[in-house]
Amino acid sequence: MDLSATGDPVVTQADPQVHVGLDLQQGTIVLSQGGTDYEPHHALVEFASPEGQPWTAQEARFSAKGPDGASVALTVDLLNDAYDGPRAGVPEVIWKVVALAATSAGDVGITYEPPTA
Rank of each mutant, 00 (worst) to 15 (best):
V97C: 03
D68Y: 03
E113V: 05
P91N: 05
P115K: 14
N80A: 10
K65N: 05
D15R: 12
P50N: 10
S63M: 11
R87T: 04
Y112W: 09
H19W: 09
Q26W: 07
G21R: 08
L100C: 11
V11C: 11
T111W: 00
G34M: 06
V45T: 07
H41S: 08
V18S: 06
Q26D: 13
T36M: 14
G109T: 12
A99M: 06
A60Q: 01
Q13F: 09
W95P: 00
V11W: 15
A101H: 04
H41K: 05
Q17C: 11
P16L: 02
A73V: 15
G27I: 15
Q53P: 01
L79R: 15
Q58I: 10
F62E: 02
V108S: 12
Y38E: 01
T56K: 14
L22G: 04
V11Y: 13
Y112F: 11
G85W: 01
G21Q: 15
L31P: 02
L78E: 02
T116K: 14
P9A: 09
V76C: 06
A73S: 15
V108M: 15
D37F: 04
E46M: 13
F47E: 01
S71F: 12
A64P: 04
Q53T: 12
G109W: 07
P67R: 12
K96R: 15
A82F: 06
E46S: 14
Q58R: 11
V20C: 06
V72P: 00
H19S: 10
V30R: 10
S32Q: 13
P115G: 14
T103L: 10
Q33H: 14
L22D: 02
A99P: 02
V45C: 04
V11A: 14
A88V: 04
I110F: 12
Q25D: 15
P50V: 02
V97K: 02
D77G: 14
H19I: 09
V72W: 02
E39F: 08
V18T: 10
S104C: 07
A73P: 00
T75G: 02
L44Y: 01
V45Y: 01
H42W: 14
E39A: 11
A5D: 11
V30S: 12
Q17G: 15
L79D: 00
P114A: 13
V76N: 01
V18E: 06
W55D: 04
